[in-house]
């Protein structure tokens, strides 16, 4: 509304058609009204975000502090110290860390193999397309794929059994437990690594390499003195993103492990589903709060590292 005086570049633009159409209003009058109208235009989106993003987040985090009658309590949070809950958080953390690490190393290897190919090269296009599909390939479908591969009657399981007499399930059906999640998780981690790390690696300037060689460095020396230090922040940032990705993943685990609650998201499912029976909805809130805290720390670290990584981006 204060833009009447300072909006000089746009003022004639608005004024001209008004005069040509012979509108009775002088050019100055509609400005405050349109300013108010424009602000009103933000209301639907603001209301939507409040109702479906802010409110659910507040409810998810806040219910952890409420008792059954809606009063404030620390009691639910004490559940986070329960040995069972601690164990599921531990399982979630190591599963995420392990699959992030494997995914980051494999994904970086794929990016390295693509290094030096120009951006329209068929191999690079193929890998980029495949990565964007496979990074979306989470959940139920992925669980089916791994049941068909290394499930009790999976192709690889049957082949190993019939050809080598090797029973990969000799020590129990681990595919339906936490170790069974490692391979499927890596399967969606590697493509995400390729998507996030490839731009950083492609940003490595050929001129730097040539400069290093000119100054008498070797190929290995270039990587040790220039390449790896420049890429380290990007790699770390991608690693954190992969960790967050695995930590917040639910669908694959839910489809594979239909019973039990070995990781935190499955524990939340159990708490949500049993609320009608046991009235323990607020445990889900406490668990959600725990997840949010972990995610916030990871994303905070990510933004720190990313700021360093951005220094070398073209």
């Amino acid at each position: 509304m204060t833009t009447v005086s300072e909006g000089t570049p746009t003022a004639p633009a608005v004024g001209v058609p008004a005069r040509h159409e012979g509108r009775p209003d002088p050019a100055r009058a509609p400005r405050p009204r349109t300013g108010l109208l424009a602000a009103l235009g933000l209301v639907p989106f603001a209301a939507y975000v409040l109702l479906f993003l802010a409110l659910p987040t507040a409810l998810a985090v806040g219910t952890g502090f409420l008792d059954r009658d809606g009063g404030f309590t620390w009691h639910n949070l004490s559940a986070l110290g329960d040995p069972v809950i601690l164990r599921t958080f531990g399982a979630s953390l190591w599963l995420s860390a392990l699959t992030a690490l494997i995914g980051a190393v494999l994904g970086a290897a794929v990016c390295y193999a693509l290094l030096g190919l120009r951006s329209g090269h068929p191999a690079r296009t193929l890998v980029e397309a495949a990565s964007s599909v496979l990074a979306q390939f989470g959940g139920v479908t992925l669980a089916f794929a791994f049941i068909a591969t290394i499930g009790l009657q999976g192709m690889v399981t049957v082949w190993l059994r019939d050809s080598f007499g090797l029973d990969i399930f000799a020590s129990g059906a681990w595919i339906y437990d936490v170790p069974g999640l490692i391979a499927p998780y890596v399967y969606f981690q590697v493509p995400l690594m390729v998507i996030t790390f490839l731009p950083a690696l492609a940003g490595l300037q050929r001129q730097w390499y040539e400069a290093a060689l000119t100054l008498g460095d070797t190929r290995a020396g270039f990587w040790r003195h220039v390449g790896l230090p420049v890429l380290a922040p990007s790699f770390l940032a991608s690693l954190l993103l992969l960790f967050a990705n695995a930590f917040s993943s639910f669908a694959t685990a839910a489809a594979l492990a239909s019973q039990g609650a070995q990781i935190v998201p499955l524990q939340i499912r159990a708490a949500l589903v049993s609320e009608t029976v046991l009235g323990r909805q607020n445990l889900a809130g406490a668990l959600a709060l725990g997840m949010v805290v972990v995610m916030a720390v990871v994303m905070w670290l990510y933004s720190l590292v990313q700021r360093r990584a951005a220094r070398w981006q073209p």
């Binding site: 409110l55 987040t57 409810l59 998810a60 219910t63 917040s248 939340i268 949500l272 889900a284 959600a288």
Partner: peptide
């Protein structure tokens, strides 16, 4: 995480 959003 979607699972957190679901709680709310």
């Amino acid at each position: 995480p979607a699972i957190v959003l679901v709680v709310g």
